[in-house]
Simulated assay, not measured.
Amino acid sequence: MTSGTSVDVLRYTAFPDTAFPDRPAGGNPAGVVLDATGLDDAAMLAIAAEVGYSETVFLFPGAAAGSFTARYFSPLAEVPFCGHATVAAAVALARRSGPGELLFATRAGEVPVTVTEENGVPRATLSSVEPYQEPVTADDLAEALAALDWPSAGLDPALPPAIAFAGARHLVVAAATRERLAELDYDVERLAALMRRLDLTTVQLVWREAPAVFHVRDPFPVGGVVEDPATGAAAAALGGYLRAGGHVPDAATLTLHQGHDLGRPSLLTVTLVPGDPRVHVSGTAAPIPA
């Protein structure tokens, strides 16, 4: 099907922080196509570019109730997995058919999603594919810091840099202070070139406020977006990284604040369960008024 065919694209914002009712534009916008049957790759990329959000998710209904193949496109390219668009799609489905269990088959693997209702508000919890971590070389880290214009002395030695995966690859870099995290004016082309070479989706910049509270920022130049205001895939990757490194207990509920520096406050909850290798990321989503 060509991109000229009429397609119903819903627009949602995922992971808004409801503690800021005076700033209703919180969260990360996502395009949602609940039935993409007949759309080819070129059409999906064209629609995502036209929508202009960091990702648009395209669902292809499966044979079993509640099962879908999910594909995610930024304005520039397809990505293997996107957490905020998954939450947006799950909430959109729940608003149509009610809460329940869903299963998204993604390029990264199967991602179960549970949608519940809390005070009449749908809340989605995705369960990531099994995470992994790998070291980042000294040269690659130096290049990342140069692109970010961050001195190595400004990093938190308690959270060493690493590449983390839970559906997509992210470079985790921890700042020693909130002030360092707030200073983000990076070389877009230089960082994008490094990210393409390392097959990174975002760079997950982190500052730890408390044992279970983190502030994060996610440059996303490879997707045509300077910075993501809420990144569920990176949140899952960070949860796996923190658990694997012994930085949090095996049973933990982590709060991630994102988007505040962009004026789009976002809130993501990461849950780690003993004996369960997956990372669980929860949040709400709301339709964006036309």
Rank of each mutant, 00 (worst) to 15 (best):
R196E: 15
R178T: 01
L191Q: 08
R180L: 10
E179Q: 09
W207R: 05
L200S: 14
L191P: 08
R178N: 02
L184F: 03
T202N: 11
E179D: 12
L181E: 05
L205Q: 09
L191T: 04
L181M: 04
D185P: 01
A192Q: 13
E179V: 00
T177E: 11
M195D: 04
A193Q: 07
R180G: 04
L184G: 02
L198K: 14
E183N: 08
E209S: 14
L181V: 00
L194K: 11
V188E: 13
A210K: 14
L198V: 07
T177H: 07
R180C: 02
W207G: 00
L191S: 03
E179C: 00
V203R: 06
P211Y: 10
R208W: 06
W207Y: 14
D199T: 08
D187M: 01
L200G: 14
V206L: 14
E189W: 14
V203G: 00
R208E: 03
A182P: 07
P211N: 06
V203N: 00
A193S: 14
T177V: 01
E209C: 03
T201N: 11
R196G: 08
E179K: 01
L205V: 02
A210S: 15
E209Y: 09
A192C: 13
D199N: 13
E189R: 15
V203M: 04
P211F: 01
Q204G: 09
D187S: 04
V188Q: 10
L194C: 05
E189I: 07
V203C: 07
A176C: 03
A176S: 13
E179M: 00
L194V: 05
R190D: 12
E189F: 14
R197F: 09
A176F: 01
L205K: 05
E179F: 00
A182S: 14
V188G: 03
M195C: 03
L181D: 04
L194H: 10
L184N: 08
A182T: 04
A192F: 09
V206C: 09
W207A: 01
W207T: 01
T202E: 12
L194E: 12
A192I: 08
D185M: 03
Q204M: 09
E179W: 00
L181G: 02
T177N: 04
R197L: 06
R180S: 02
A193Y: 03
A193D: 11
R197K: 13
Y186T: 05
A210C: 03
T177A: 02
R197P: 13
L198I: 11
R197Q: 13
D187N: 12
V188I: 10
V203D: 05
V188L: 11
R180T: 10
Y186S: 05
L200F: 15
A182R: 13
T201Q: 15
A182W: 06
L198F: 12
R197W: 09
R190W: 08
T201Y: 10
R180V: 07
Y186A: 00
E183S: 12
L184M: 07
R180W: 04
L191E: 07
R178V: 00
V206D: 10
R178G: 11
R190F: 07
L184C: 05
R208Y: 04
L194F: 12
L198G: 10
T177I: 02
A192K: 15
Q204V: 01
L194A: 06
R196L: 12
D199P: 03
A176Y: 05
L191H: 08
R208Q: 14
A182I: 00
M195E: 09
T177Y: 04
L191W: 07
L198D: 09
L205R: 11
V188D: 10
